[in-house]
Write a protein that binds this DNA or RNA. Structure first.
Lengths: 210, 210
DNA sequence: GTATTTATGTATCGATCGTTACATAAAGGA
DNA sequence: TCCTTTATGTAACGATCGATACATAAATAC
């Protein structure tokens, strides 16, 4: 069926991964076609034949990013036995992921396109949707903890999810500024200090942050 | 002395303010010369004669931004009678500043140039320096509180400053996503919940966040 | 007055942006 | 073998990027 015509001479998946890394490092507007084709090892007509356009390539790249780079963060959030461990794991995995030395620092979803016209730009809309989904995932996990009795019924899941999502966004900028893993963990610890108060824990020992 | 030659036909300070707003809304790379000259009401030769280059204009614009837009945030930090009120005011003023409806959302210093090559780009270096200065201001305020006995001697000022600075950076992205003042205040409250734990307060009433 | 100095508007510079025509190469179908 | 189909490399498209050359306008100095 699809075996007609001259076969593609490059690995589409590998090229997409290279494109993802370029977008990750430079953002959507900062990544030029020259940057992309150079990293992907192909010429622009091949890029357009395989991916359609720069926009479409970015959308595929962010999808790959979501499927391949954020997994530890979100699987920890879902699978941790308690909400506290879920949030702690979420923050710890974020600190780890954002300070990998062999990768661009910070998060593609958070930093990829901050300056496009949000109401018009397709790219900006897509990233914003993904950020909203992430915050919703946090809120759902907290809601589950309320339902399970781990958190008090009057716990404000939405406010807490907003707070932790915002901390994660800030960690992207912090990472871009060259923050070490330890510095990111300082932020994670700070956020967990908030948990202690928010969850209404009466501390027997006066300080037990993270 | 400087009254020789044809006088400038536009208000340099007003034009700089317009340029600042464009950079604030679109970022350094996202703001084109066309955008700038249109907003400033001048032609490009006038821009270059008055400001030198796009880079120099941006640096002047960020300086104006620092002097004119961030004042409430940082004066509150310095002048509040206690560190707790200082941090609370810092966060509250940030939430207010980042959600002004008649202005670009978020912070120019935080969002202005996230994707330039950090080691090379002059713009990126300047913004990074300003972000570092802001974090240092937080750390100094906390250190003062330790010296005054408000905070315990083993209080980790650097870690706390990192945390609160990161929260503020995250609020810029949150604001860019259209967060309301209330949503930003939810984040501020979360950060103050962290304060309660970090400062080692033994809460008599179990919850008193912000 | 004339000379000098600075600013403005027009028009354009070379470089780069994202994108595509076009001829050729390499595969399967007949 | 010839036709169709798809991919590749070269080369270039129009648009826009940041930045300027140049002639003219408007001020002061003499």
């Amino acid at each position: 069926m699809s075996e007609r015509g001259r076969p593609r001479s490059f690995d589409r998946a590998a090229a997409l991964r290279r494109a993802m890394e370029v977008f990750w490092a430079k953002g959507y507007e900062g990544a030029s076609l020259s940057d992309l084709t150079a990293a992907m090892g192909i010429n622009s007509p091949s890029l357009y034949a395989a991916f359609g356009s720069k926009e479409a390539l970015f959308l595929e790249a962010t999808d790959l990013y979501t499927r391949s780079e954020g997994t530890d963060i979100w699987s920890t959030l879902e699978q941790a036995p308690t909400a506290r461990l879920a949030i702690e794991g979420f923050l710890t995995e974020t600190a780890k992921a954002y300070s990998q030395i062999d990768r661009p620092q910070g998060c593609l979803i958070a930093l990829g396109a901050l300056h496009q016209d949000s109401t018009q730009g397709l790219i900006c809309q897509d990233l914003r949707r993904r950020r909203a989904e992430n915050q919703t995932a946090l809120e759902r996990r907290l809601g589950r903890a309320v339902a399970e009795g781990e958190l008090p019924a009057d716990f404000d899941c939405q406010a807490a999810a907003t707070f932790f999502a915002t901390v994660q966004h800030g960690m992207s900028i912090q990472a871009r500024d060259g923050a070490t893993h330890a510095a990111l963990m300082a932020t994670a610890s700070g956020a967990m200090a908030a948990w202690t108060t928010m969850a209404g824990v009466r501390p027997r020992d006066k300080r037990k942050a993270l």
